[in-house]
C-alpha cells in the first residue's frame, strides 16, 4: 500500500467517524425532544385537572354533612343511591323500585341519601348529567328534591341526545311547585360545583357505575327484593 493511499483511507475513516458522531448526536437530540414532548403533554393534562379542582361548592339544603348527597327521611338504616339522570338503567331502577323505597322512608325504616352524580356527561351533547344534577340541587334547596328527581326520570332524554334544555329543566321544576329562586339557580348553574363534588366523592368511595345502591355501606343489587332484604 502506498503512503498516499494510506492517507486517503485515514482521511475517509476520520470523515466516517465524524459523520457517525454527528448522527449519534442528532439521534440523541431527537430523543430528548420526543421525551420533552411526552412529559409536557402529561403535565398539561395534569395541570388542566388540577386547575379544575377548586373544591369550592355550596351544598343545597337537605344535603348530608359532607355535602355528598341529599338525605331523605330519618330511619335507622341508611340507603345510599348513586344515580345519573341520563343513565337508562337508573330510569328503570326508579320505575321499578322508587315506590318501594319511598315506602321504606315513609314507614320510618330507612333514610335514603341520594347522590345525583354526573358520570355520563359525554353521553349528551350539552353535559346534561351535570345540568340535571345541579338542577336537582336547586330543587333540594327548594325542598322538592325527590319530587323533582322523579319528574326528571319520567322525562328522561335518550343517551346521545342533547338532553333537556335549561328552560325545560325549569319548566319541570315549576310543575312540581318550584319557583323563581329555583329558575335563577338553574340559569346560573349555581350547584354545578356541588355536582362535581358529589361525582368526585362517589368515585373516591369506589362507585364506578350507576345505579349503585348501598345499604349500611354495603353494595346491594339494585332491586326491590334485595334492598328490602338488606334493610330488614
Amino acid at each position: 500500500m502506498s503512503s498516499r493511499a494510506g492517507q486517503k483511507q485515514a482521511a475517509r475513516m476520520v470523515r466516517d467517524q465524524i459523520a457517525r458522531e454527528r448522527r449519534r448526536s442528532r439521534t440523541l437530540w431527537a430523543s430528548v425532544a420526543a421525551v420533552a414532548v411526552l412529559v409536557v403533554a402529561g403535565l398539561i393534562g395534569w395541570g388542566v385537572v388540577a386547575s379544575q379542582d377548586s373544591g369550592e361548592f355550596t351544598a343545597p339544603a337537605g344535603a348530608v354533612e359532607d355535602g355528598t348527597g341529599i338525605k331523605v327521611g330519618s330511619g335507622p338504616v341508611q340507603i345510599d343511591i348513586y344515580e345519573d339522570f341520563i343513565c337508562p338503567a337508573c330510569g328503570q331502577f326508579e320505575q321499578q323500585t322508587g315506590a318501594a323505597i319511598d315506602q321504606l322512608v315513609a314507614d320510618g325504616k330507612a333514610a335514603v341519601v341520594y347522590h345525583p352524580l354526573a358520570f355520563l356527561d359525554r353521553y349528551s351533547t350539552t353535559d346534561y348529567s351535570t345540568r340535571a344534577s345541579a338542577a336537582s340541587g336547586a330543587a333540594a334547596e327548594g325542598g322538592k328534591f325527590r319530587e323533582y328527581a322523579k319528574a326528571l326520570f319520567a322525562q328522561q332524554p335518550a343517551e346521545g341526545s342533547a338532553g333537556l334544555s335549561d328552560d325545560k329543566l325549569i319548566e319541570i321544576g315549576r310543575s312540581v311547585g318550584l319557583g323563581d329562586a329555583f329558575a335563577q339557580a338553574v340559569r346560573d348553574g349555581k350547584y354545578k360545583p356541588w355536582t362535581a363534588h358529589v361525582t368526585d366523592a362517589a368515585s373516591e368511595d369506589g362507585v364506578n357505575g350507576t345505579p349503585t345502591v348501598r345499604v349500611g355501606g354495603k353494595d346491594v343489587q339494585p332491586t326491590t327484593e334485595a334492598i328490602q332484604a338488606a334493610v330488614g
Binding site: 431527537a30 420526543a34 411526552l38 403533554a41 402529561g42 393534562g45 395534569w46 388542566v48 388540577a50
Partner: peptide, 28 residues
C-alpha cells in the same frame, strides 16, 4: 388514578403526533 387519567390522553395524543411525523420512532 385521577392524575394518571388526566395525563394519559395527552400522552397518547403526543405519541400519535411523534409517530405521524416519525420523530424518534424507536423511542415512541
Amino acid at each position: 388514578a385521577k392524575a394518571i387519567g388526566a395525563a394519559l390522553p395527552f400522552v397518547e395524543l403526543a405519541l400519535g403526533v411523534l409517530l405521524v411525523v416519525g420523530l424518534a420512532t424507536r423511542l415512541a
